[in-house]
Design a protein around this nucleic acid. Structure first.
Lengths: 341, 341
DNA sequence: TTGAAAGCGATACCAG
DNA sequence: CTGGTATCGCTTTCAA
């Protein structure tokens, strides 16, 4: 009985056994012009030996990896994991692999991850949001590869961007609630400064409340990002304590909206009869919940897909010696009126 | 005004500019013994140049990458993303980076990803479940690196495993419902054969129903994996149509349990008064929902953490020339009685 | 269509 | 503590 080979086979082993040169093996692997007979012969040996080419050697030699660096604030938020799916859909047909990183909503963590990912010479980078440390920006600029910022429209993009204005989207929701007749509208947000998109929504709310002359903003800030379902209950409790006559509440996310609605049920408040509640994101819970939740729909998957396409276009342009023209892709959002408001 | 350097600096550039050899730069980077003065001098140049070491070259030269390959059925399921967080917690202190892959519950996709990840010479591999294609098993065995299978306890593990018996956990829930006095208990599962853990839960349900003499199993199979919230509503509809006198329903996941409960609300059925509903997984929704959902709690984060520790131990043992002894780590689960059942 | 030789950019190893 | 040299496994380039 032979023991497992301590050393995996190399391309030279395959070449030798197939009676060809390394180059021929390399060509077979990369699907380039090789005679049918040789190709089959080599492929047979590859299969027999279970040969797996070393990507590090290939990357070093060719000067290009097959990696795309992707950074999201949280892998467990369904909107970001949808974005990741979109990126995967864009890149995997091109044989590019995602190098995924979870920044936990922290810019320093993002910087750390960018630094560590850049070591692998990714072909391009997708990151979330428009705020980054100065070091991150410098690192990315020096890397000289295409970069896309997702989920926002930065005033000063590093390279390109695919997103929408979170403030504008929030204003649209406030207007919707206003049109529905609500006048004493509150807002539930996270307490941390880390989630800029959440803060932008809050700013949009405040701006629109003022624009509509609806009095002082009623904002409750509570809890860390990512905002989850358990955020909603204490938040609406605090809101109703501070402003008992509130007739509608807008939440920074469908997650908190759901938590708030469940808390209302517990208190015997009927939604929307006693109080209207709206969310943001069009998460699955928003249309599965009873009552269904009025929300702002954003195509998270589409953001990833478009971001991927933008990067691929930049890569292709670069290959052709041109400069890509796309600088920003604006993603649509839509207020979806449902039962809860 | 100088244009951006078309070629990023190399270690030799740093060495030259700092007046030392490449080896000294390498030592500074890896934190090995270098005189304080030299270290500072070199670090200064590194910062000035924005030098980022090439990981591919390092991996090729040292024969070891800093990658850990991780495969989960779905990145957007909160249980698996918690497991990924656990793995990250275990590995990042050791400077190891996760190479994440989403198999979409498909074994062929898993095989494809394993093949592609193995090209990067990962130090070890964590995959989900006990079922894999024969090619996957062969690839992994030939790779000769530590492997852990998560979320199940395979009869024939590739190497090591960290998980629990999904069938046993489901039986515990059936017993719990039985102890609560329910006798006409149904089960809601996915229709696809792809999610083995879901199927194991279903099998556990059937076995326990028989063991308790509760008559014929009442199983509704509907929808693809991953099972999401929208699964629950049609499933409970079908169940109540087939067996209108059902007094309790056990769901393959908290997601479907939630969807089922919302559907009951819609139909004016009170949970648990008219019908009891239990879930699986102790997802956030299970304790935020009104009523709170009776479920089986599994420490998803802990599975990832333990899996990471198991792999690290195997790596350390290997380093020391020994064989790691750990073969399987059994993770506890617990039936959590809440309002819904 | 195929092969030989020359690196890619880092680290291991051995000297000094 | 520091430096030189060989080398990792593959692809590029050029020649046959």
């Amino acid at each position: 009985m032979t023991s497992r080979p301590p050393v995996p086979p190399r391309m030279s082993d395959v070449a030798e056994r197939a009676g060809v040169s390394k180059m021929t093996v390399s060509r077979v692997l990369s699907g380039r012009s090789v005679s049918q007979a040789t190709r089959e012969k080599v492929q047979k040996v590859i299969d027999e030996l279970g040969y797996v080419a070393d990507a590090a050697a290939g990357a070093l030699s060719s000067g290009r990896s097959e990696f795309v660096a992707v950074l999201v604030p949280s892998l467990s938020s369904s909107n970001f994991s949808d974005t990741v799916r979109g990126l995967t859909a864009a890149f995997s047909p091109h044989g590019l692999q995602l190098l995924l990183g979870d920044t936990d909503y922290r810019l320093e963590q993002e910087e750390l991850l960018v630094r560590s990912m850049l070591r692998h010479q990714p072909r391009c980078v997708a990151l979330t949001g428009s705020r980054h440390t100065e070091a991150t920006r410098t690192l990315l600029r020096r890397a000289g590869i295409p970069v896309v910022e997702m989920w926002d429209l930065p005033a000063d993009p590093i390279d390109t961007a695919v997103g929408f204005s979170n403030a504008t989207a929030a204003r649209a929701m406030v207007r919707h609630l206003h049109e529905c007749g609500y006048r004493r509208i509150g807002f539930i947000a996270g307490a941390s400064e880390r989630d800029r998109r959440g803060l932008d929504r809050m700013r949009g709310y405040v701006a629109e409340i003022k624009a509509l002359g609806l009095g002082e903003p009623r904002v409750i800030r509570l809890g860390e990002s990512p905002i989850t379902m358990s955020h909603g209950a204490p938040a609406i409790g605090a809101l109703l304590e501070a402003w008992p006559d509130t007739d509608a509440v807008m939440c920074v996310s469908d997650m908190s909206a759901f938590g708030a609605i469940m808390e209302c049920h517990r208190r015997g408040l009927s939604v929307p009869r006693d109080i209207a509640i709206a969310g943001f994101g069009n998460f699955e819970v928003s249309w599965c919940c009873q009552p269904t939740i009025t929300t702002v729909s954003v195509d998270a998957y589409g953001i990833g897909l478009r971001a991927g396409e933008t990067l691929l276009a930049a890569l292709a342009a670069r290959e052709a010696g041109q400069t890509s023209r796309t600088k920003a892709v604006k993603i649509d959002f839509e207020v979806i009126a449902r039962d809860s408001a």
